[in-house]
Simulated assay, not measured.
Amino acid sequence: MKCVISVLGKDRSGIVAAIATTLAECSANIDDISQTILGQGDIFSMTMLTTLAPEACDFNTVQEKLEKVGADLGVQIIIQREDVFQMMYKI
């Protein structure tokens, strides 16, 4: 299952590592990643395209784990199924 993960928050060390570790623990694969620091270096923004392995961790489990990581890091993490994401932006 393809998913889009968006991360936004105050920049700090370890954000990418914590999210990548959580995804690896769920047997998910990071297919593509884009990240940037916005403004004067305060705001971290990252978007990932991932493939989940539902037999290892279902969508809701991954979402709960990422919410916990986001709370621990003080960043907002949103995960959406790619098909839902694509439908939201179709004309």
Rank of each mutant, 00 (worst) to 15 (best):
M1W: 03
C3H: 05
I5S: 07
I5G: 07
S6N: 07
V7F: 01
K10R: 15
K10I: 04
K10Y: 11
S13M: 13
V16M: 04
V16K: 01
V16N: 03
A17C: 06
I19T: 07
T21L: 10
A24K: 06
S27E: 14
A28Q: 05
A28H: 00
A28P: 00
N29F: 00
N29E: 11
I30T: 08
I30A: 10
D32C: 08
I33Y: 07
I33Q: 05
S34W: 09
Q35D: 05
Q35Y: 11
Q35S: 01
T36W: 10
T36A: 15
I37E: 10
G39W: 09
Q40F: 12
I43D: 05
F44Q: 04
S45C: 11
S45H: 14
S45Q: 09
S45A: 15
M46K: 00
T47K: 06
M48D: 04
M48P: 06
L49M: 11
L49V: 08
T50A: 15
T50G: 12
T50F: 05
T51C: 06
A53D: 14
E55P: 01
A56H: 13
C57S: 14
N60L: 15
T61M: 07
V62C: 09
Q63N: 15
Q63I: 07
K65D: 07
L66A: 09
K68T: 11
V69H: 03
A71M: 01
G74W: 08
I78R: 14
I78F: 08
I79S: 08
R81Y: 09
E82M: 09
V84R: 13
V84C: 10
V84T: 09
F85R: 12
F85D: 11
